[in-house]
Amino acid sequence: MTEGNHGPTARVLRLLDLLQSRPVWSGPELADRLGVTTRSVRRDVERLRDLGYPVNAEHGAAGGYQLGAGRRLPPLLLDDDEAVAVAVCLRLAAGGTVEGLGEAAVRTLAKLDQVLPSRLRGEVEAIHEATTTLDPTVPVVDSGTLLTLARAVRGTEQVRFDYSGPHGSGERRVEPYRLVATGRRWYLLGFDVDRDGWRTFRLDRISGLAPRGWRFRPRDAPDAAEFVQRAISQSAYEHVGRVRVSAPRSVVAQAIPPAAGTVTADGRSHCIVEAGGMDLDWMAMHFARLPWDFDVLGPPALRGAMRRLSERLARAST
């Protein structure tokens, strides 16, 4: 992450810094700044190209070296202050402070943490602990929990944690497979070793998380996004309603958040919406708010709730 002040590596970093500071440098200018020959400059330019940095070279009186745009991101070289700043920003984004960046931030933070010197981790932690957000209603996920799970997923390492779920609390031993973000809430898809099955876990209900120190052999895992979506929109509820909506899936999916229900195409002009709930009358009301015509597919008790709602609305309109 950080380099010494002597030797070819430090000189290449200095060359990169110079190329980023202005559009074009001549070979003699760079040699003078670096205290080397123009031949050494050419060798260092080749080293940058080998690392993935596209350095363009133009000959002639008006020519020189220029840092171009590449097809892929080269290795990122940061000094101490830049590394701390990036890590702090990634932690904020991972916690939901920056909408839409959560999953990418966790993946990047896991990679950065592998090479971040221990002397800088304390600085990152101190800045993060001194930072807060203005929306206390949003469930904040500890970035340390995210980072530990991201490392375990990447390293196929079993973890242990205490989990407080809707049906009780207890210790879990889990093979972590994927982190899934929905809105500003995070879930873990993992294989529960003691219960011998796939489970989803809300990260804000996890405490005492710790790696167990040994790796597991990956199993054939279900689709993480689909599994978590069904778990949070249906499996946790007493009733699951199914309706056939007279509108394309692409349109209906924009109106139904992933945590609220699943939308499956049923031909080009229709789709099936499935959603869970604890109270059928409330489910009827929410389905009735859809701005499209629909038919109730099940359960039969939902049709009864729809009739009751229709009768109430008819009485209220007279």
Rank of each mutant, 00 (worst) to 15 (best):
M1N: 09
T2E: 13
G4K: 02
T9F: 05
A10Y: 04
V12F: 02
R22Y: 06
S26R: 03
G35Q: 06
T37R: 08
V45C: 07
R49T: 01
A57D: 00
H59C: 00
G60I: 00
A61T: 05
R71I: 05
R72H: 15
P74Y: 08
V84M: 07
A85Y: 00
V86G: 01
A87Q: 06
C89R: 13
R91H: 05
A93F: 07
T97D: 15
G100T: 00
A104M: 08
T108R: 15
T108V: 14
L109M: 10
L109C: 06
K111N: 08
P117V: 01
A126F: 03
A126W: 08
E129N: 11
L134T: 15
D135K: 09
D135H: 10
P136L: 05
V141M: 10
S143T: 13
S143I: 05
S143L: 12
G144V: 02
L147I: 11
R151P: 04
A152M: 03
Q158V: 05
D162N: 06
R173L: 02
G183I: 04
L189W: 09
D194M: 11
D196Y: 07
W198H: 08
S207C: 11
L209E: 08
P211V: 07
G213R: 13
W214S: 14
R215T: 14
F216R: 08
F216S: 10
R219S: 13
A224I: 05
R230T: 11
I232V: 15
Q234R: 06
Y237E: 02
H239I: 14
P248N: 10
V252M: 00
A255N: 00
G261Y: 00
V273S: 03
V273P: 04
D279V: 13
M283T: 14
F287Q: 11
R289A: 15
R289C: 13
A305G: 03
M306S: 14
R308D: 13
E311V: 12
R312W: 12
S317W: 14
